[in-house]
Amino acid sequence: MTPELRSERLSLSAYVAADEAHFVALFQDEAVGRWFGDGVQSAAEDRALFGRIFSLIYAEERFPVWAVRYEGRYVGHAEIKPSPESWLDGHEIVYGLTRESWGLGLGTELARLLTSYGHEVLGLAEVHATVDSENTASLSVLKRLGYTQGRAVPEDNGRTTLLLTSRLPTAPPAGG
Rank of each mutant, 00 (worst) to 15 (best):
T108I: 11
L162I: 07
Q41P: 07
S83K: 00
L97K: 00
S133D: 13
I80Q: 06
G158E: 08
Y147T: 06
Y147D: 03
L104V: 09
N157S: 06
A78F: 04
F36R: 03
E20Q: 10
D19N: 02
D156N: 13
Q28T: 14
S101R: 04
Y70L: 10
D132M: 08
T160Y: 11
A59H: 02
L56M: 14
G96R: 01
A14T: 06
E30K: 10
L168M: 15
I93T: 01
P154K: 06
A67C: 08
E60D: 15
L97V: 00
G33W: 00
V32C: 06
G158F: 03
A21N: 08
W35C: 13
L142C: 01
R112P: 00
G90D: 09
N157A: 06
P82Q: 12
E100I: 05
A44Y: 02
G105V: 05
F63K: 01
T98R: 14
L124T: 09
R151C: 10
A78D: 04
S101T: 02
V141W: 10
T161E: 13
A14Q: 11
H119Y: 10
Q149P: 06
E120C: 12
R62L: 13
L168V: 15
V16Q: 12
R47H: 11
L10A: 03
L10T: 05
G103K: 00
R99G: 13
L110A: 08
V141A: 01
V75A: 10
E61K: 14
G39R: 09
L164Q: 01
G123N: 04
T98L: 15
Y70I: 09
R52M: 05
H91A: 11
F54V: 00
V32N: 07
R73L: 11
T160G: 05
A137L: 03
Q41D: 11
Y70A: 12
A171N: 14
T148Y: 11
D132G: 05
T148Q: 15
E61C: 13
L122C: 05
S11I: 12
S86Q: 14
V121A: 03
H77A: 02
T136N: 15
E8G: 13
A48G: 04
K81S: 12
A129F: 02
